[in-house]
Amino acid sequence: MTAETNNYPEQVLCTPAAVELMRRLSARHGELMFHQSGGCCDGSSPMCYPRGEFLTGDQDVLLGEPDGTPFYMSRSQFEYWKHTELTLDVVPGRGGMFSLEGSEGVRFHIRSRVFTDAEIAALRAAHRI
């Protein structure tokens, strides 16, 4: 089920540029996954891996699956960002050295907006935050 059918907003979205890059990388590397930690750059650059190459656990939160791709965030980072809608985008520059887009001349980047009070209430009711 999608977040839409459950009456709560999606927590991570993608721009068309991000979807295009994800599909290009997936054609080359197979299924993908994202992980965003609280590391450098205030966590604005999620890491893109072949699915299953980065091991997730209880310390990670699955925010959603934009374009069918799991997007995880470390639980400690999620505590800061849980009231925020994230949009995965692409900007010029080098990605993280372990992120798949590193050789593409671009990097994935997160843009954000704070959810409205009504959206926060819907996420709480759904036990998403």
Rank of each mutant, 00 (worst) to 15 (best):
M1W: 08
A3Q: 07
E4Y: 05
N6E: 12
N6Y: 06
E10Q: 11
V12F: 00
L13Q: 11
C14V: 09
P16N: 08
P16T: 05
L21Q: 13
L21Y: 03
M22G: 02
R23F: 00
R24G: 08
R28G: 02
R28W: 08
H29G: 04
G30R: 11
M33T: 00
M33P: 00
H35T: 08
G38Q: 14
G39E: 02
C40E: 06
G43H: 06
G43L: 03
S44R: 11
M47K: 15
C48S: 14
C48Q: 06
Y49T: 14
Y49R: 15
P50L: 06
P50V: 15
P50K: 12
P50I: 12
F54T: 00
L55T: 13
L55Y: 00
G57H: 05
Q59A: 12
Q59Y: 07
Q59N: 10
Q59V: 12
D60E: 11
V61W: 01
V61M: 04
V61S: 00
L63Y: 02
L63W: 02
E65F: 00
E65D: 02
G68I: 09
G68D: 06
G68N: 09
P70M: 02
Y72E: 01
M73G: 08
R75Y: 14
R75M: 11
Q77F: 13
F78T: 05
F78H: 15
E79K: 06
Y80Q: 04
Y80M: 07
T84Q: 08
L88V: 03
L88M: 03
V90E: 00
G96T: 12
G96K: 06
F98A: 10
S99I: 08
E101W: 03
G102N: 11
G102Q: 11
S103G: 14
G105W: 15
R107D: 03
R107Q: 12
F108S: 14
H109C: 13
R111H: 14
F115L: 09
F115G: 05
F115D: 01
D117Q: 13
A118W: 05
E119C: 06
I120F: 05
A121T: 03
A122T: 01
A122G: 04
A122C: 07
L123M: 09
A125Y: 07
R128G: 00
I129S: 07
